[in-house]
């Protein structure tokens, strides 16, 4: 198995508060990986650091051996739904089209191909009939589908999704899971920040348990054990070290 995404010795701190500590991850291609951990475990930070949005304290992130800036066209990103203003004057179609901007590049205009890709992606997530709606008129689940479509048009090899199931209805959740499995079937690598332990086994084939450090990482059957989960959800990390010192 070739490793499409590799993290080495990664540490991230906000001021002097470590958020990620000494992370080593090897992620083979074609897997569906869930990153699970308690609040404040650094799940989102890990994704943001991978995408160059947060500067690490130390360590290195590589995609197929290259830094992010060289391969950004091959990487799709679905941020948390709350990260944008849903009252923005723009339509569903426009938002999805934005996913193509990376391929289009500076100054150049949107082309026919980009519009076609957008239409296809909208069909795929079942939002085509809503294409001319302003995004403020969507439900939470529909918003998530739009974000997903936006990532799909990026036509990436690796997808990062930050809590795609947060605040969506059951139907959408099922649809998203189906889509994720389809991506995997097409040899894409999908990395999902997730918070619901109950569904881990059904949704993912690989699992990273994270709480500032990597507690466990590997195929879900090996990693998803009572002991590992317990270790993840009790802060057994540098945080505890800090507590020890402060007392």
């Amino acid at each position: 198995m070739n490793h499409v995404f590799k993290v080495e010795d990664l540490s991230v701190a906000y001021d002097r508060q470590p958020v990620l500590w000494d992370i080593d991850l090897d992620i083979p291609s074609g897997i569906l990986l869930g990153i699970v951990g308690p609040n404040g475990a650094g799940k989102s930070t890990l994704v943001k650091t991978a995408l160059g949005l947060v500067k690490p304290l130390s360590g290195d992130v590589r995609f197929m051996g290259e830094p992010y800036s060289k391969v950004y066209k091959k990487i799709g990103y679905v941020p948390q739904k709350g990260s944008v203003d849903w009252d923005f004057p723009t339509t569903v179609f426009d938002v999805v089209l934005m996913g193509r901007y990376g391929h289009i590049g500076w100054l150049r205009r949107v082309g026919k191909k980009d519009r076609q890709a957008t239409r296809d992606a909208l069909e795929k997530v079942g939002m085509f009939e809503y294409r001319n709606r302003q995004i403020s008129e969507l439900s939470g689940g529909q918003q998530q589908r739009v974000f997903l479509a936006r990532a799909l048009v990026q036509d990436a090899d690796i997808y990062f999704m930050d809590e795609p199931f947060a605040g969506v209805d059951v139907k959408t959740e099922r649809a998203i899971v189906g889509l994720l499995k389809e991506l995997k079937a097409n040899d894409k690598t999908v990395i999902v920040v997730h918070h619901d332990l109950n569904t881990v086994k059904d949704y993912f084939d690989w699992l990273t348990l994270l709480n500032i450090k990597v507690i466990a990482h590997g195929p879900v059957d090996e990693v998803y054990t009572k002991e590992n989960v317990r270790r993840t959800y009790q802060a057994d990390t540098l945080m505890s070290m800090e507590r020890e010192i402060n007392v």
């Binding site: 540490s11 000494d22 304290l57």
Partner: peptide, 8 residues
């Protein structure tokens, strides 16, 4: 930061 890097 520098200590973290050194003693990681």
């Amino acid at each position: 930061r520098s200590r973290i890097k050194r003693y990681r």
